[in-house]
Design a protein around this nucleic acid. Structure first.
Length: 279
DNA sequence: CCCCAGGTTCTGG
DNA sequence: CCAGAACATGGG
């Protein structure tokens, strides 16, 4: 029986559903006509809306999930302080003011692993489509015509032909290898979560189709390792154009969060990558 | 028919 | 070790 509850924010300034769900970190949420967002996470379907300092959440589970959602939405982190520090840098000031309500979701490791395997050499609308088809094909059905993200055991042992309906192309065999290695215990995500960054990356890269960028995505989005910085094409452009002298060392412990502001800003704000020249 | 997309793998030097 | 091509699929 779905139930509704609210989570309170210290300030409405540091939270935006649109900026958080539409900044390229998650692929299973979509906007409803009334400003709310519908999606699936943590094995539950939900509808979320914001009313000032309150987040209203309707969840498909039986109850007792408030703490899980609070964690998922990263409500325990002081974004006000982090943004204040970032704003000692000119470029980050622009990026933060472009999406001041963006937060880093604490997604599940396995879903992040699969999602970013699928993301390689791909575009965001098609990534969403492949993930949606994966969930419909192999995920558990949830209330509201939604499907949970299928666990490793649902994919392990499959063949690329089994996954043909996803139209994932060459990535299908990578998903299967990931599932097989999780199922066999050759890769243990809960253990990797605790390893030093470089060791964790190496362990993840034992999976076919996981290179340094995808490994960083798993660490950042699926394991809350905010010191990790996925180096995609947009961040490489941003570094070359906006930080020719290198990224400020003082932000290293939370560089992954800075990365997300910069990624969204550079990818979707016209002129972001030429703004430096115009000042 | 071209190019590109939150890369990785494979191949030939 | 390193530059280029190949990899599936779909949209512009």
């Amino acid at each position: 029986m779905p139930h509704t509850f609210s989570l309170s924010l210290p300030s409405s300034e540091d939270f935006s559903l649109a900026q958080t769900f539409d900044c390229g970190q998650a692929f299973r949420f979509s906007p409803l006509p009334d400003g709310a967002w519908q999606g699936v996470a943590l094995g539950r379907s939900c509808v979320i809306e914001q009313d000032g300092r309150d987040i209203l959440l309707t969840c498909s589970c039986e109850g007792g999930c408030e703490a899980l959602w609070r964690d998922y939405l990263d409500l325990g982190r002081d974004y006000s302080a982090i943004k204040a520090a970032f704003c000692r840098d000119e470029t980050l000031t622009r990026a933060v003011s472009y999406c001041p309500g963006m937060r880093l979701l604490r997604q599940e490791p396995w879903e992040a692993l699969c999602s970013f395997i699928i993301s390689q050499n791909n575009n965001i609308p098609r990534i969403k489509g492949i993930i949606a088809r994966l969930c419909e094909l192999l995920g558990e059905q949830l209330p509201g015509a939604q499907y949970a993200f299928p666990g490793p055991l649902a994919i392990a042992g499959k063949t690329p032909e089994d996954l043909a309906p996803l139209r994932a192309g060459f990535r299908a065999k990578y998903l299967i290898d990931a599932a097989n290695k999780i199922a066999s215990g050759a890769v243990v995500l809960e253990q990797i979560k605790t390893l030093p960054c470089e060791e964790a990356k190496s362990a993840l890269m034992a999976i076919q189709g996981v290179g340094p960028k995808v490994a960083d995505c798993v660490l950042l989005y699926g394991m809350a390792r905010v010191e990790c910085v996925p180096r995609d094409v947009w961040i490489k452009r941003a570094m070359a154009v906006l930080y020719p002298g290198g990224f400020p060392h003082e932000f290293a412990p939370v560089a992954g969060i800075a990365q997300q502001y910069l990624f969204h800003y550079c990818r979707t704000c016209p002129g972001a990558l030429t703004a430096a020249a115009s000042i």
